[in-house]
Design a protein around this nucleic acid. Sequence first.
DNA 1: GCCTGTATAATTGTATACAATTAATGTGAC
DNA 2: GTCACATTAATTGTATACAATTATACAGGC
Lengths: 238, 238
Amino acid sequence: MEEFEESRVAKSKRFAKMQSLERYSLHSYVFNYIRDAILNGRYKPGDALVETKLADELGVSRTPIREAIRQLELEGLVISIPNKGVVVNGVSQQDIDDIYTIRSMLEGLAARWAAQRIDEQALKELEEIVELMEYYTRKNDFDQLTQLDTRFHGVIYDASDSKVLKHMLDNLLRYVERARRGSLKVPMRAHQSLNEHRSIFEAIMKRDAAEAERLMAEHISRAILNLHSLTEQDEEKD
Amino acid sequence: MEEFEESRVAKSKRFAKMQSLERYSLHSYVFNYIRDAILNGRYKPGDALVETKLADELGVSRTPIREAIRQLELEGLVISIPNKGVVVNGVSQQDIDDIYTIRSMLEGLAARWAAQRIDEQALKELEEIVELMEYYTRKNDFDQLTQLDTRFHGVIYDASDSKVLKHMLDNLLRYVERARRGSLKVPMRAHQSLNEHRSIFEAIMKRDAAEAERLMAEHISRAILNLHSLTEQDEEKD
DNA sequence: GCCTGTATAATTGTATACAATTAATGTGAC
DNA sequence: GTCACATTAATTGTATACAATTATACAGGC
């Protein structure tokens, strides 16, 4: 009896370690695991997700697996057929293109509202970010630039002061995260991107909502164009 | 032993009855139940959602409750703090306004893509819907009109041929469902709405994507304006 | 062969048991 | 009184047990 108890404790310790720093609950860990697997193409569209197999694979019980699957279902990453199972839905290139089109509109809206509502402190933060972007663009530090890009847009989301808009944009970003990472890793695009960020910042500073919206929408559209030229190059290389 | 078994069977029969025609799983039933309670204001922002209490209230175990809560969390309707609990987030009037603004953009995009991609069959279906709308507008049958409105937009979502756009619009519609129901229940608005629907249909038929987008965006914007004038009237009444 | 029904296995759906964490309650020192 | 600390209760997190449904395999009839 005693041994059994201890083995359970040891088991739970093992997970605490596995999750390392993250003290989140298992279902969020499972959610991220499966989501990444789908977004990275390890789980392919049409693949069946069997709860017991996932539970074995991740070393957890079915309960957190199910919780995660219910969330993936809502995100549209999997499709669940009651009493039968769930299959991976995946994200096609067409989906990513659509997301960028949608993002360009919604980011534009965020910039418009931000221009109307931003306070001095957030404005100052934006300015700092742009300055740091200049610095790291000169240094070709793409990791820092990607982080700053995320922060720049994040500040604007917050400044737009719309819970729902921020929520939607956060979700969309997660979908294209992988695509985004590669996007800035081209010096020319980094320079162009810097100029666009500066223009957007200036429009917001001048409280020119229409201009901020236009520039931001263009900025996102250019990002997807850049992404296309990248993948075309990759295809040529292959 | 036998009695125990039977009581369990009886219990599950009871649920089959409770859910009546719907053969969905309990978690989806719970999800809808809590979502409606939040959207209707029965559960107010800040309220704590305790799993055991909900389980008692709905006569189910904690498992489906948890699955539903995880989904509500992703929708942003509740906020979950690990190991502490979840609190209702709710949907404010500002949120609804924001959703309409976002919807006007995304519905516009859907109309644009629909104009470019719709096939003859869907076009015919749209035409039929508009004709039925004329009929029921004359008859002042608001329930039928609301249904037709849903169908009209649904056909356009499908015709836009974008999985992600359709998914997002479906979600947005759920949020404002309650607001929408009241919207058409004013004869004048119904007539105006009919004209707008006809114009949108014609633009799509002519494959005029830009015009379809513009008209649709305006259509949704007018809906929220109409909604505002309604609530103002209500406030005057009180 | 191929349909059809039937037993069996696999899988999902739900409930419950137990562990871990957090909230509350109470008790003694000062 | 109130602070600190221990104790208990309430609640969430996870695992497991069992029920219900669906898929699979197989035998017999035609």
